[in-house]
Amino acid sequence: MKLLNSEKLPRHLAIIMDGNGRWARSRMLRRIVGHRQGVETVRTIVEECSTIGVSYLTLFAFSAENWLRPKAEVTALMSLLKKYIELEVPRMMNNNIRFNVIGNRSDLPPHINKAVDEAIRITSGNTGMVLTLALSYGSRQEIAAAARRLAGDVAAGRISEDEIDERLFSGYLFTAEMPDPDLLIRTSGEMRISNFLLWQLAYTELYFVDINWPEFGVRELHQALADYQARERRFGRTSDQLQAGS
């Protein structure tokens, strides 16, 4: 933590939590054991991000494509998710964290949506970090749905074609009330985005680490943040322009 500048932390940190199954397989354990261990990592990282001053933390918890996994694993994951949400509400309240979910919630089982709604309601008054879980989430699906809603508003005369720009379109996405991520971390050594926040990641710094998610701790988080702080974010400008303040 001594290496970090508290004034240069990412406002919005996004994480693809990958490698739970591989962590379990390397230890000859069932995949669900890896997912359970991954939940412990979630607790650690959420609390640390809240403590050091990250404003938004978005975790890719269950993708739209994950429904294709074996039914037994999906059922176990849903049970684990429900338990996590219910058990973490008191911790979120103690840490002033507001809970949020993005994704196609209509695909989630009713008992999951009930737990999500309750957690959102209870934490809605909190003013600290916003913790967002991406559940049944796919970015291409999100963009297509946003385009359909926008097209409907144009057809209804609520918006003219001339008004459409990047900012307006962003308002139709699940993340309309969030800034774009400043940093994306992906664990397990995979170097791809996997249909996660494709629109929002346009100028996000990417950080890939070889270790699996259950092994990702506070030390590894700080290393990722230190790496981020050493980068120069130019957003299309030159270094000379940034130094001149233009």
Score class of each variant (00 low, 15 high):
W23N: 07
I15R: 00
E40G: 01
V39H: 00
V46T: 13
M17W: 05
R25A: 15
R43H: 13
G53M: 05
Y56P: 03
Y84R: 03
R43L: 11
G38N: 04
E73T: 09
D18S: 10
I52H: 03
S55A: 14
W23Y: 10
S50Y: 00
G38M: 06
E47P: 01
T41K: 05
P10C: 02
P70S: 11
A64R: 03
V42F: 10
A64F: 05
A64P: 00
T51G: 08
L13P: 06
A61M: 08
R22M: 11
E40T: 10
N20W: 07
P10A: 02
K83Y: 04
S79D: 14
L13V: 06
Y56H: 14
T75H: 14
R31W: 11
T58W: 00
N20C: 12
A61H: 06
T44H: 05
T75L: 15
A64N: 06
A14W: 02
T41C: 03
M28S: 15
K83H: 12
P70C: 09
L29H: 06
V74H: 12
K8C: 09
V74K: 09
E86C: 10
R31H: 13
Y56E: 11
R11V: 12
L68F: 11
K82L: 07
A76C: 05
S50M: 02
I32P: 02
R43D: 11
I52F: 07
L59K: 03
V74Y: 12
V74G: 13
R22H: 13
F60S: 04
V54Q: 01
R36G: 09
T51Y: 08
Y84E: 06
